[in-house]
């Protein structure tokens, strides 16, 4: 089941998410990318109801882009996080989106940052955060091994430790993960951790 987690290192932020599209007991897909590149220097890793997740993250992405067009300056990471929280909080008392979000970003003045926003719109700036069943394992692993100012190698090592723990201890562990990174050079995909390749079905 869903595992989304992230951490802040020295000059970068990393987020990882499982890539399984699950419906009750069926796995429909194991290469579903749940981390959206919000703009050049922001990543949104989301978990929750699949429809809400896609709808809401795209809505945020387009509105952040609209802001940039109108004002000629991009939204900072804290500004984008507060905007996201605002939208989620307004929706909460009408028809709520059930999406949990980890928003990672890099700003020239602020440096890397990671924001925790849950589906009821609780916003908090964190060094490390996680959602879903995987959080029971990844949070503990990160509590044990995380320290401030981690290098990229250390951080990737920690992310791999978390993935290994989820794979070995979680009954409903997803097979594949995607890791994305954001630093001064922008937001981009870093790597995949796949234990199961999607096989193409031979046509009948």
């Amino acid at each position: 089941m869903e595992c989304v987690f992230g951490l802040v290192g020295d000059g970068f932020a990393i987020v990882a998410a499982d890539t399984s599209a699950v419906h009750s007991i069926l796995v429909h897909k194991s290469n579903e990318d749940k981390i959206m590149v919000l703009d050049s220097h922001k990543l949104v890793a989301a978990s929750g109801e699949p429809g809400d997740r896609v709808q809401f993250t795209e809505y945020i992405q387009k509105n952040v882009a609209l802001y940039q067009f109108r004002n000629g300056i991009p939204l900072t990471t804290p500004a984008a996080a507060n905007f996201t929280r605002g939208e989620l909080a307004t929706a909460l008392r009408k028809n709520p989106y059930s999406v949990n979000i980890l928003l990672a970003g890099y700003d020239k003045e602020i440096g890397p940052s990671l924001y925790f926003i849950d589906y009821i719109a609780t916003l908090h700036k964190v060094d490390k955060g996680a959602f879903g069943y995987g959080s029971y394992f990844s949070l503990s692993i990160m509590d044990r091994h995380y320290h401030s100012g981690m290098s990229l190698e250390e951080a990737i090592g920690l992310v791999d430790k978390c993935i290994m723990e989820i794979r070995s201890r979680l009954v409903v562990a997803p097979p594949n993960f995607v890791i994305k990174i954001v630093d001064k050079d922008g937001a981009r995909e870093y790597a995949w951790r796949e234990s199961l390749k999607d096989v193409s079905v031979t046509s009948a």
Binding site: R85, A89, L92, D118, I120, A121, T122, L123
Partner: peptide, 8 residues
């Protein structure tokens, strides 16, 4: 109480 409502 509820953190989200506290923030709002």
């Amino acid at each position: 109480g509820l953190a989200t409502d506290a923030q709002t």
